[in-house]
């Protein structure tokens, strides 16, 4: 991320945004980019409003854009206080406001949920989704996969600085299997019956875990069980989430690299 923003030197390859190269010393195209890297850098002696005024591009819409971003991020209650009195969450929100201030086409956010309370996290999520619908591209890094899962369309997995997987979210989910968890009044009998019918199953505590390969799988299962006079007590679905998929990918990658060695 720092390399994309021209903050860090790199050994090989090049960074190109909209067909224009980015180097450490020259990067005109970053005009279209907003960012929040690591922690928000703020001047303790300036108020939030003064920060926005300082970094807002000049133009007739300047004041309107500042007001707009203050409203969107709901930071008006403390915008006129000096930044040295801000809490972590307040700083984070102002940092995000600064990243979005000049209506960039690409926004780079590094761990944007840091220090935000649950309400603010949800607000930010909604904001990112609505901005993305308007055509802004977001590049977000995060270790909080459950949050990431709710907003991203495409995932790039890095391990030790190398890209090991780049895929659409939808493709990853398909790669992650779906399961049906059954609880019956006689699990032993049910397991026998299902195995006899050719199902692969796994017994986890008092549940039977069966892979769902067709959409009408459940109907078939119910028919089969009721034919055997077995009553269903509970049915649950389980889908591999981003975390499980990622751990699988990382695990595979590690195995592969060990094999190569």
């Amino acid at each position: 991320m720092k390399a994309i923003l021209g903050l860090f030197s790199w050994e090989s390859g090049q960074v190109v945004i909209q067909g224009q190269p980015v180097t450490m010393t020259s990067h005109r195209v970053l005009d279209e980019v907003g960012a929040l890297i690591e922690y928000p850098g703020l001047y303790p002696f300036l108020t939030g409003y003064q920060h926005l005024e300082l970094f807002a591009n000049d133009g007739p819409q300047k004041q309107a854009r500042i007001q707009q971003i203050i409203e969107t991020l709901k930071i008006d209650s403390y915008i006129n206080q000096k930044a040295k009195n801000y809490s972590l969450g307040m700083k984070q929100k102002l940092g995000i406001a600064l990243a979005l201030l000049n209506d960039p086409q690409l926004v780079i956010l590094d761990e944007p949920m840091n220090g935000l309370d649950p309400q603010a996290t949800k607000d930010l999520r909604d904001l990112i989704i609505s901005q993305a619908k308007k055509g802004t591209t977001f590049l977000i890094s995060s270790h909080i996969l459950s949050e990431l899962e709710k907003i991203v369309d495409e995932v790039v997995v890095l391990d030790q600085g190398k890209i090991i997987k780049q895929a659409k979210m939808a493709d990853l989910s398909i790669a992650g299997q779906k399961f049906i968890l059954l609880k019956t009044d006689d699990n032993v009998k049910a397991a026998e019956a299902l195995q006899a019918a050719g199902y692969q199953l796994e017994v986890i505590k008092d549940q039977l875990k069966i892979e769902q390969s067709e959409s009408n799988e459940l109907a078939k299962l119910i028919k089969l069980l009721s034919a055997q006079q077995i009553n269903l007590v509970d049915v649950a679905h389980q889908q591999n989430d981003l975390e499980t998929s990622l751990l699988n990918i990382l695990g595979k990658h590690e195995q592969d690299s060990q094999v190569k060695e």
Binding site: L7, T25, R28, A35, I37, E38, G41, L42, P44
Partner: peptide, 18 residues
């Protein structure tokens, strides 16, 4: 101060030459 407050990043990742 820019290094101290971490604001050097915001200063640099703009359209301006370093």
């Amino acid at each position: 101060m820019e290094f101290q407050h971490g604001t050097i990043k915001e200063l640099l990742y703009r359209r301006y030459y370093r």
